[in-house]
Amino acid sequence: KCTICLSMLEDGEDVRRLPCMHLFHQLCVDQWLAMSKKCPICR
C-alpha cells in the first residue's frame, strides 16, 4: 500500500523504493520528495 495516496501497489505500476526500503508509487513519492527530502514514513 502506498502510504501517500493510500492505494494498493499493483503489478505493473511504477514504484520507487527509498534507501530505507519503504515502497511507494513513483509519482507519489517523487512529488513528496520535491517538497520534503525525508521518507514520509521515517521522517
Rank of each mutant, 00 (worst) to 15 (best):
A34D: 05
R17H: 07
K1T: 08
H25W: 00
D14W: 03
C5T: 00
L33S: 10
S36I: 06
L33E: 11
R16Q: 11
D14F: 05
A34K: 12
S36D: 15
L33A: 08
L23Q: 13
H25G: 01
M21L: 09
M21G: 14
G12Y: 06
E10W: 05
L9Y: 03
C20S: 01
P40R: 03
L23F: 14
Q26V: 09
H25A: 00
H22L: 00
F24T: 09
L27Q: 14
L9E: 01
C42I: 02
K37F: 05
S36P: 04
M35Y: 04
M35F: 07
M35Q: 14
R17S: 10
V15S: 08
E10K: 13
S7H: 14
C28Y: 02
W32I: 11
Q26P: 12
K38Q: 12
M35T: 13
Q26T: 12
C20P: 00
H25P: 04
E10V: 10
E13L: 03
L6H: 14
V29W: 09
K38C: 13
W32F: 08
K38T: 08
D30I: 06
Q26Y: 06
L6F: 14
L33Q: 10
I4M: 11
K1L: 06
L23P: 06
C28G: 01
M35A: 14
C42R: 04
D14M: 07
I41P: 02
P40V: 01
L18D: 01
L18V: 02
F24A: 13
K1V: 04
C39Q: 02
C5F: 01
E13W: 03
D30V: 06
E10C: 05
M8W: 11
C39D: 05
S36G: 15
Q26K: 13
I4G: 03
M35W: 08
P40Q: 06
C28W: 01
V15Y: 08
V15N: 04
W32K: 14
T3R: 07
C20T: 01
G12L: 05
P40L: 03
H22V: 00
P40S: 02
G12S: 08
S7T: 12
S36C: 08
F24I: 06
Q26M: 09
M35S: 13
C42D: 05
S7F: 07
K1W: 04
D11Q: 06
V29R: 06
L18W: 06
S36E: 15
S7M: 12
D11R: 07
C2F: 05
I4K: 04
D11N: 13
I41S: 14
I4L: 08
H25T: 00
C42V: 03
R17P: 06
R17C: 08
V29D: 04
V15D: 01
L6Q: 14
K38F: 15
L18N: 00
R16A: 13
R17F: 08
V15E: 07
L18C: 02
K1M: 02
D14S: 12
P40E: 05
S7L: 11
K1S: 06
M21A: 14
M35E: 14
E13D: 14
K37R: 11
E10H: 09
L23S: 12
G12T: 11
P19G: 11
E10N: 12
M8N: 13
C42M: 00
E13R: 12
P40F: 03
H22R: 00
C20N: 10
M21N: 14
S7V: 06
S36W: 12
C2G: 00
L18K: 02
K38A: 11
Q31F: 03
E10A: 11
C42P: 04
V29L: 12
